[in-house]
């Protein structure tokens, strides 16, 4: 796979633009999956995928033959996702309904014994998880998604984000701590 990717890259750099097609087709699904998990929005994820492969093509001359194309394109995808998150953060405020209010939480989750209540709790957890994720910095969010949902190692996260492994580990710790602070009251009440 890796050698095949590199052969295609050499063809592209030799002037065969169409050789990029197989690379895009081969890696689009995985880039979309991680982009969606980070952005949690289909349109944003599609935008990230397109931007990633555009940037990737334009930076192909800088691709190091010793690197893995998948890792390299992931790193570009993370940068694109960061841009989307930053843009989103600047444009919109967190919806009021999703803001966490500990006082209200106790009231809303006081009784959860019945089946519908269980369902309600699950929905509540997801809503608060979404809100808590929104409170993470873009780096923390990506580090957590890659660690928790994509099951990537600290080294892979560090490479994708272009930071030191220790910084990647700290980003995951901070993300977990913040989520814990936001979601722990739900568990106490349940």
């Amino acid at each position: 796979m890796g050698n095949d990717d590199y052969a295609l890259i050499r063809s592209i750099l030799a002037g065969d633009k169409d050789a990029y097609g197989p690379l895009v087709e081969r890696h689009s699904q995985s880039v979309f999956r991680v982009a969606f998990r980070i952005t949690e929005d289909e349109a944003d994820a599609d935008e990230v995928v397109q931007e990633t492969f555009l940037r990737g093509y334009r930076s192909l001359e800088n691709f190091d033959a010793r690197s893995n194309f998948r890792t390299w394109i992931y790193r570009i995808a993370m940068n694109c996702a960061l841009d989307v998150l930053n843009k989103r953060k600047n444009q919109t405020a967190v919806p009021i309904a999703e803001e966490y209010d500990e006082g209200q939480a106790a009231v809303q989750l006081a009784d959860r014994a019945a089946g519908p209540d269980r369902l309600l709790l699950s929905q509540e957890i997801q809503a608060r998880r979404h809100a808590a994720m929104g409170k993470l910095t873009p780096t923390e969010r990506i580090a957590f998604v890659l660690r928790h949902m994509e099951d990537r190692s600290t080294e892979e996260i560090a490479t994708a984000l272009g930071i030191a492994p220790n910084s990647a580990k700290q980003a995951v710790f901070r993300a977990v701590q913040k989520l814990r602070q936001s979601l722990a009251p739900l568990w106490v009440k349940s």
Partner: peptide, 16 residues
């Protein structure tokens, strides 16, 4: 999906 992505960006790419 990959082919769709490729179609969407193909026009914006200049050959090396």
């Amino acid at each position: 999906y990959g082919a769709q992505v490729w179609q969407s960006i193909q026009g914006a790419l200049q050959p090396y």
